[in-house]
């Protein structure tokens, strides 16, 4: 992130609750549960009042929701509706590059790159329009997050590993 000198690392669980609902549970560095449901995001942090805001105000989350729900649910038409899809590689080792179709979303999120093996997505890179990058290591890869990660090291992890 541009406004930070070092990348920010957090770990936890991302779960699909069915339908348009996702739960993001963070264990490190601070406990936090965020739920996306019915166009609303509710954020609950230990010892603080819950905060909620509209999904419209967080396009990043909208994209996350769209891509995740479509991927996990195997809903190709939904994925196609939200993104222009570029597919690379083979069944063993593949890369999907998703570009948001909604111009409003595209102003915030430039693209999403998902790397995977077989049935399992391993890594999700969200390129924000202002140059910031968020990288999610998924599944077994998550355990291999370095203590002081750099973009390059993580990219290598995603592609190679």
């Amino acid at each position: 992130m541009k406004i930070l000198e070092q990348p920010r690392v957090s770990s936890g669980e991302l779960s699909w609750l069915g339908g348009d609902r996702l739960e993001r549970r963070v264990e490190q560095p601070a406990k936090e549960v965020a739920t996306i449901a019915d166009g609303e995001v509710t954020q609950q942090r230990e010892g603080r009042k819950p905060r909620s805001f509209s999904l419209n105000r967080a396009p990043q989350l909208q994209v996350l929701l769209d891509s995740f729900v479509a991927l996990l649910g195997g809903d190709a038409s939904r994925l196609n509706q939200a993104f222009a899809i570029h597919h690379d590689g083979n069944a063993e080792r593949w890369t999907l590059i998703l570009t948001p179709r909604d111009t409003r979303v595209a102003k915030v999120i430039a693209s999403i790159q998902i790397d995977g093996r077989g049935n399992e997505p391993r890594c999700m890179r969200m390129q924000e329009a202002d140059g910031d990058l968020a990288i999610d290591l998924l599944g077994e890869l998550a355990a291999r997050m370095p203590a002081a990660p750099t973009r390059e090291a993580l990219a290598a992890l995603c592609q190679g590993g």
Binding site: M1, I3, R8, V9, A34, Q43, Q60, L64, V108
Partner: peptide, 16 residues
Amino acid sequence: QQRLDDLSSPAASLLK
């Protein structure tokens, strides 16, 4: 400290 937590939360793009 709270803002830092916000940045790794879903609200990040909103607050950044």
